[in-house]
Design a protein around this nucleic acid. Sequence first.
DNA 1: GCAAGGTC
Length: 738
Amino acid sequence: MHLIIAEKHNVAKRIAQILAGTKPKVKRVHGVETFHFDEKVVMGLSGHIVGVDYPPGYNNWQKVDYRDLIHAQVVTKPTQAKIVSALKDLGADADRITIATDYDREGELIGVEALRIAEEANPKIEADRVRFSAITKGEILDAFESPGEVDFNLASSGEARQVVDLIWGAALTRFISITSGRLGKGFLSVGRVQSPTLALIVDREKEIEAFKPQPYWEIYADLEKDLRVKHEKGRIWDGDLARSIFENLGDEATVLSIKEKTRTDRPPAPFDTTSFISAASGIGFSASNAMRIAEWLYTSGFISYPRTENTVYPPTLDLRDLVSAFKKGPFREDAERVLKGPMVPTRGKRFSTDHPPIYPTAPATKKDMKPDQWKIYELVVRRFFATLSEPSRWIVMNVQLDIGGEPFRAMGARQIEAGWRASYPYSKAAEQILPDLSQGEKLSVLGKEIMDKETQPPSRYGQGRLVKLMDELGLGTKSTRHEIISKLYARAYVQGNPMKPTNTAYAVIEALERHSPTITKPDMTRTLEEEMTKIAERKIGEEKVIEESRSMLDAVFDDLLQHQGEIETTLREGLRTDKIVGDCPSCGNELIIRRGRRGSRFIGCAGYPECTKTLPLPKFGMIIVTDKICSDHGMYHIRIINKGKRPWDLGCPQCNFDQWQAKKAEEAKKKAEIDALAKIPGIGPKTLEKLETAGVRTALDLAEASAEELAEKTGLKINKISSWQLLAKSVAEEPSGC
DNA sequence: GCAAGGTC
């Protein structure tokens, strides 16, 4: 039997269909769907099915010595037990195994992992490897026609990365968590990708804080024909000069010149993961949410594989056929427009062997999915059409004017052909229509304006921008960048979007930059990549790279352990300031988030025990002090983050407490009225039931009801109802006892 | 309970 291994289930299924020519037989092996035909079996993995970890005995964070962690024998453990078992069973029966995992380094390692398991069950199995960059009939048949060999060196370069990541990550994560006292659920983490990413955000925040705004002025004049013109100088840095220009401005403008140019605005490149996340971020999706939805669309058959670095459509993709599929449904007009054109697809800078760019694989309507899913699907469809469209064309006008010796200017832009913008309305380019003007024309000045402005600090990174930046710096991969960003939120290192770092993040980055700068810079990834290439080229061994990395980490710990005291001070100060909620309304001391004896949390005053002001906090979830301040109480708003749930904005803790108290009082009042109804002589449980079906639950309800209607609805005697009503009225008017 | 990398 010939066993064929794909990286994922979907790919296994399609490979089997292509190779079989007919529908292959589906058999479940240890719960895993496999595909059988002509003495061949295709099975899919789920990415890595084993992972590196420490052997048992290294679990206790406080008891294990850092040096032991650095030099421990790292082991490989199955992480997908069912798939491993299926692989063993099938491997035992196979005389040949073909690795058909993704065509990249990680794919090579995943293939070798599978091969080792199969070899364990059957040492005599013969192995080969096929490589393809799109799952189309042509590519797959070609690849299987001439299989190559498994590249064990490439795989071991991936293994070296795994071990280096684990030992640096684990040792530094434990050190920072132990030193800061943040153990258990709220631990602080460190890693080759997450820490440099966090450092980018912290650096940006420092730039913003250090920014000194510069004042400048802009001068505008409003002319006849509804024309607004701006002083040629744009930003005028000298206030006196600006005011003098403004005050001495003449009352007639002369058109000096009119320049017209056509500008072509080229359509965007096909989506890779980075540009997709960036575009989704532009319409309000977080990176993780965009990817989650894209994965759903992929597994539901609406779009192609969303994790790709490729921005060039493969020649095997029949674009005309695909566009034609959209001739029915909500994208009919776009499809017809594109089909009329030359349909030359745009190409991005990056071409890779992993997967095609992200494109829609099937037409759909709004009814097929939820609104958010539709928005993402529509984005992918519209981007696809845009990449097959013609450029958008504009006429841009540049009008120069003179007002009493001062140069002014007006810029106009008019779209003459929408081109790709007809399908892709996400990146807006606004038209600026100017009135008809002629050279030498004179226009009176109807009004003037001087605007005093100041330069703005750089803006915080939004998630889309950060993903792009990570991509440029080589941090993380198409599949992990959004997860890394989520991790920063989960550790309470950042909050909001755009992202603002917490003081804890400042402190962690400061400590690392001082004593372990390697882990805070993108260079670590870059040098690791270089080492990996050397391993793949057999210029250096996997073991050598790991050993060198271990001794570097040893040196880092020489420094860290020597300065553990001061690092502790830095970290604890950062942690402390993140817990400040505001000033105590009773005594003016700081209000801080504190922990009760049984792990409960509350807001307490730093002036305790003299001041006993407290406010409650929820039992579960991570508490985040945001930078939003309550205008009534001067306290920072609180946000609660529970894993897998939407964040809950609790708001100002004082307002929240007041509202809760008011609600409780309201409920108590209601309960008192319900009790009062039951206490009226003559009203027993059966009568209560009848009254309730008529909508009467409290004494107040009864007092306000119409006796006739109530009698009709309940079948109770009207005179009885009237007598109860008298009693109810007297009860309802009494102030409630609690 | 640690990383980052696959995939669901």
